[in-house]
């Protein structure tokens, strides 16, 4: 509190009442750094594998319609399982146990639904006259996929990636109960100690990460989406 010249005056009162979490963050700076780093690295690991895996699956089921329903069925079931259960189930598997592998696997499964669905939707949203034109000009199926379908599906695929990142960042907090030392730990311990400051600190930091990642991805999306598609996005 010394930081702001003692505990007198309206600002100090306001600070004590509503911004206690700020001084908590300042006090625990080292821990904040460690937890934030762990949080980031978990989210990035999960996103890396999710992108590779689920974009491939999304492309696959857009080609082989019959697999689509199965994939969506699995995705839906995974989505109904509460995060804490998924984490819990993984740690009881002997090979995995407490820790990062279990946490990452559970989160990757969670990412399936929004990612696969959006890849599929994006690819399917390309109207057939455009595909027909591509075929009619003599493009091979792979050229149609890489030069027409994927670039045109980008806005939708990217929307899926952004939703997933925000979601994974949030759910990753729950992994603190299976031993992840990330920002969820502030909330976890905050509950145990009935400390509003700790809980709010954790919540605010996680939200900042989520918003930040979403913002960065938004910038990237703008960069790599063809200007020709932007107007169509605005209309949605």
């Amino acid at each position: 509190m010394e930081l702001f010249g003692g505990s007198t005056g309206w600002f100090a009162g306001f600070y004590d009442e509503y911004l206690g979490f700020v001084s908590f963050i300042i006090r625990r700076w080292d821990q904040v750094i460690e937890y934030t780093f762990n949080h980031f690295s978990l989210v990035l690991t999960v996103m890396f594998f999710s992108l590779v895996l689920w974009i491939s699956v999304g492309l696959l089921i857009s080609r082989y319609e019959k697999l689509a329903n199965t994939a969506f069925g699995i995705g839906n079931i995974l989505f109904v399982i509460p995060s804490i259960s998924l984490f819990g189930i993984f740690i009881t598997i002997p090979m995995l146990g407490l820790g990062r592998t279990s946490a990452a696997l559970a989160l990757i499964l969670y990412a399936m639904m929004p990612m696969v669905r959006n890849v599929y939707r994006g690819i399917k949203s390309v109207e057939w006259p455009i595909i027909e034109a591509g075929r009619g000009m003599g493009m091979s199926p792979l050229q149609i996929l890489f030069q027409i379908q994927i670039p045109m599906a980008w806005p939708v695929i990217f929307a899926g990636i952004r939703v997933t990142v925000v979601m994974i960042t949030g759910i990753a907090t729950v992994a603190t109960y299976i031993g992840e030392r990330n920002l969820g730990r502030f909330i976890h311990h905050g509950i145990a100690r009935e400390s509003a400051d700790m809980i709010i600190a954790g919540a605010v930091l996680v939200s900042i990460i989520a918003v930040l990642l979403d913002f960065i991805l938004g910038k990237i999306e703008f960069k790599i989406t063809s200007p020709g598609l932007r107007r169509e996005q605005d209309q949605n």
Partner: peptide, 18 residues
């Protein structure tokens, strides 16, 4: 939309101190 970025664990926890 911003509300969506608050992690579910935080939402559960946040009213508890009060």
């Amino acid at each position: 939309n911003m509300g969506q970025t608050i992690p579910p664990l935080a939402v559960i926890a946040i009213f508890f101190p009060f």
